[in-house]
Design a binder for these strands. Structure first.
Lengths: 139, 139
DNA sequence: TATGCAGCTGCAATCTCTTGCATCTATAAT
DNA sequence: ATTATAGATGCAAGAGATTGCAGCTGCATA
């Protein structure tokens, strides 16, 4: 809430408009305790302004993603979740047996990014990745 | 075609049934020149047997995926594609600017897998991953 | 060869997400 | 304050994928 002004400034600076819908959607992502789905955002925004359309939510999230203000992560449960970039970059290890999610440091990917850059000249854009497998307990 | 017998044997061994639909779906994946989508498989199978249902295609692919006979890759174009595991494990670098796809060796992921195992005790199941970013030409 | 049934299929409904289009509006220029 | 317009929204249709359920069938057994 307090800081969403900064982000709104970024939108304006890049020629995008500040609309009430965007403010409410952004607030919902910023104030979420965890990774939040489009449907959850939609429900929250509807409490304030019942006329919002779910497609506006998706389009706004797409925009925020392009501007690198939020990240999108697919935890493999059929719906993608969003997270404010202000709360830090991190990745997830998703156990396919117990469903548990382990958060991991972004730095684990540094060697991979470097070798992709060296071997393939490819600048990998790995922001918020979920990797599937089997956790310690379930092995 | 020639080798799908082996796979059918694996199905039987694990208590799954061999049905005409499964044979046709499996053949479609095995004979595909490239990564093939569910819709494409469906179209191919329909030529032989117009009564197949798309949900059978999805369910069969899900089964083959669980049995590690095919891999699923999301190239980010709105539909997931499948690939026979017999044609080898590999990963893809997808350029978000030009849309180009670079294939890469599985071995690039070995150090990452090892550090996940060491640091988190997590056995990562990275079969066929698409990583997004910017390729050499577009940087 | 006939039978029983777990497992598979087809169908239809549903879910998540995207897209085209007409209308509306935030914003910059007047 | 008014106006023009590029950009945003709402609506509805649609695409890809999943799911519940009734009925069908591969295949193990007798």
């Amino acid at each position: 809430m307090a800081k969403s002004g900064e982000i709104l400034g970024k939108l304006t600076a890049q020629g995008y408009r500040i609309t009430p819908q965007r403010i409410m959607i952004l607030d919902a992502v910023e104030n979420a305790d965890d990774h939040i789905s489009a449907e959850e955002i939609f429900t929250l925004v509807c409490l304030q302004y019942p006329n919002v359309n779910i497609s506006t939510v998706y389009r706004t999230l797409e925009l925020l993603k392009q501007l690198e203000l939020v990240t999108e992560t697919d935890f493999g449960d059929g719906r993608v979740r969003y997270h404010s970039i202000k709360k830090g970059h991190h990745h997830h290890l998703v156990c396919q047996k117990c469903g548990g999610i382990i958060d991991m440091e972004e730095s684990v990917f540094t060697p991979l990014r470097e070798s992709l850059l060296k071997q393939y000249g490819f600048d990998a854009d790995i922001h918020h990745l979920a990797i599937f497998g089997t956790c310690k307990k379930c092995r």
